[in-house]
Amino acid sequence: MKKTLLILLLAAAVCLMAACNSGENESKPEPASTEVSGNTAEHTPTGYLFESNGVTFGVGSAAADVIDKLGAQTGEPYTSNSCAFNGKDTVYYFGSFEVSANDETGDFVIYSVYLKDDSVSTKEGAYIGMTPEEVKAIYGEPAESSDGGFSYVKEGMKLNFFLKDGAVSAISYYVNN
């Protein structure tokens, strides 16, 4: 009986010592590290990225971090509401391109960047007016292809090249659903 008690006391002491050390060993949640280089938005964008006015961003970036840094807007943003619910979808106009954001995921994030003319290009150098072959020389074979254009899929987003009369007529970055 004495032996058993002694063993139990020792075991309890070991546990207590372990508990005393817990202050040093316990893991505290650490703030997520953010890479900030130049004007890169705080959210670390994935997939194909777009750059304008020194800002590099992609779909999934928080709109608040990006929109104000892209320079002067060329028109009033257009906001449409979802039917019955409080969802909002806003298009921001920057002349040669448009940025669309909505709050479908809970946060107001960019879900689309739409390039409208050849004064802007993708980060990899593709622009409106290129032939499909020229685009494929940059990006390789597309994941999806149809008469209306072709798309590259990367890390949850799509880079779309729309075709008209045999040439790229529009480019968009889009969330891949």
């Binding site: 070991v14 546990c15 372990a18 508990a19 817990s22 060993n25 316990e26 893991s27």
Partner: peptide, 9 residues
């Protein structure tokens, strides 16, 4: 449970 009790969790 013994090395990292983390009671505050």
């Amino acid at each position: 449970m013994f090395t990292k009790p983390s009671f505050n969790m």
